[in-house]
């Protein structure tokens, strides 16, 4: 309940404050959001499996975001930022798909 409320509050705050993204962070924000989404779906799946632990969730959330942004940052330093961010998005996308498939099996038996 609180989790769903938290999501709504975040969306509302984003719409309300309309913050400007700093220039240096701009390439990494989309990657970070996708990584966070992956962590969220992973957490939901774990919860439905009955093995959810909030400490694990927080750690996986933070590490997902940091590693995703870090990989892209490293790619930018190496001159392959575009390709690496594509690669990270693909991997995270696959994970999100498999997590959502597990959640679907839990909720709809299908």
């Amino acid at each position: 309940m609180i989790a769903a409320l938290g999501l709504l509050v975040g969306v509302a705050l984003g719409l309300f404050f309309r913050p400007d993204v700093p220039l240096g962070v701009e390439p990494y924000l989309p990657i970070a959001v996708v990584a966070a989404l992956d962590a969220v779906f992973g957490g939901l799946r774990a919860y439905l499996d009955g093995i959810f632990d909030d400490k694990v969730f927080v750690v996986s959330f933070v590490s997902n975001v940091v590693i995703a942004a870090g990989i892209v940052y490293l790619g930018d330093r190496l001159g392959v930022g575009g390709q690496l961010s594509t690669g990270v998005i693909v991997v995270l996308g696959i994970r999100i798909f498999s997590n959502v498939a597990a959640i679907r099996r839990h909720l709809f038996h299908a």
């Binding site: 989790a3 509050v9 993204v21 962590a39």
Partner: peptide
């Protein structure tokens, strides 16, 4: 959904972060 707990608060904060960042990114 019925019974909030401490861990839910942590998850809620993180989800708020995701929502905030997502909306910001979409708008940008």
């Amino acid at each position: 959904l019925r019974r909030p707990s401490r861990s839910q608060a942590v998850v809620g904060v993180l989800l708020a972060l995701v929502g905030f960042a997502g909306v910001t990114q979409i708008r940008t």
